[in-house]
């Protein structure tokens, strides 16, 4: 069992490393510079995968939250929490890389467009998720409460997006997807997506096993003190 774990971990780490190196070299060496927006467009290969991972992470939190409330096993709580933490970090990166690109491209740091606003609201909801965990009066409560927020918050995402979309109809459309992507750019994007997805899997697994261990140690300590 343990041996299998190590082998699986090695494969994942190797795959992640190889994909990351490939992604970096493709972004900075292989892919041609976009004609209109210039060098700054390369942040797109970072921004899109990071955004994808943050949504994936919150989706996993949503699923784990449901499973935790049904089954009450620490495993699902640990996965949900780990995924939410990673989701918050990645959403932060999305909110940082977005303006870096928006300033040269649109001339503004921020616009209350549907995508941007939804990301910001999402970020705030999951900060609440993490806060509840740390501020709950005991850890079992924190797990239950955060699971409830993991469900309620995730369902809010499409509603927020829909509402804000109506609110700000003049938002700039993503030219990238409308015009179709140059082949080399598409391949680079796909490699980047794969690299970041593997990174996410590695991070979740590491963080989950850490949290499970923490819970075990706490449990042992409790037994001892009793």
């Amino acid at each position: 069992m343990d041996n299998n774990h190590t082998v699986r971990n090695l494969i994942l780490w190797g795959l992640g490393f190889a994909l990351m190196v490939a992604a970096l070299s493709m972004v900075f060496v292989y892919v041609p510079t976009e004609k209109e927006s210039g060098i700054v467009q390369r942040i797109f290969y970072f921004h899109v995968p990071v955004a994808w991972v943050s949504f994936l992470a919150f989706f996993i939190t949503f699923i784990s939250s449901i499973l935790y409330l049904r089954k009450r096993t620490t495993k699902w709580d640990a996965i949900g929490c780990a995924s939410a933490e990673i989701g918050v970090i990645f959403t932060t990166l999305v909110l940082i890389t977005g303006p870096i690109w928006a300033k040269p491209a649109w001339g503004i740091w921020w616009t209350w467009d549907a995508r941007l606003t939804t990301s910001l609201v999402l970020w705030l909801i999951y900060i609440g998720y993490l806060l509840v965990r740390s501020l709950a009066t005991d850890s079992a409560r924190g797990a239950r409460y955060s699971a409830v927020i993991g469900i309620v918050g995730f369902i809010d995402v499409p509603i927020v997006f829909f509402t804000v979309n109506l609110w700000r109809t003049q938002h700039p459309t993503t030219i990238i997807f409308e015009g179709g992507l140059e082949n080399s750019m598409l391949i680079t994007l796909l490699v980047c997506l794969a690299a970041f997805t593997v990174l996410y899997v590695i991070l979740v697994m590491q963080s989950t096993s850490l949290k499970t261990m923490e819970a075990e140690i706490k449990h042992m300590k409790n037994i001892q003190s009793d």
């Binding site: 609440g128 509840v132 501020l135 009066t137 509402t163």
Partner: peptide, 19 residues
Amino acid sequence: NTRSRDIMLPVLLLPVVVP
């Protein structure tokens, strides 16, 4: 049931009721 509950409610509630 959380510590600093007065601030916890708006922090949780306001983002969700944005729509």
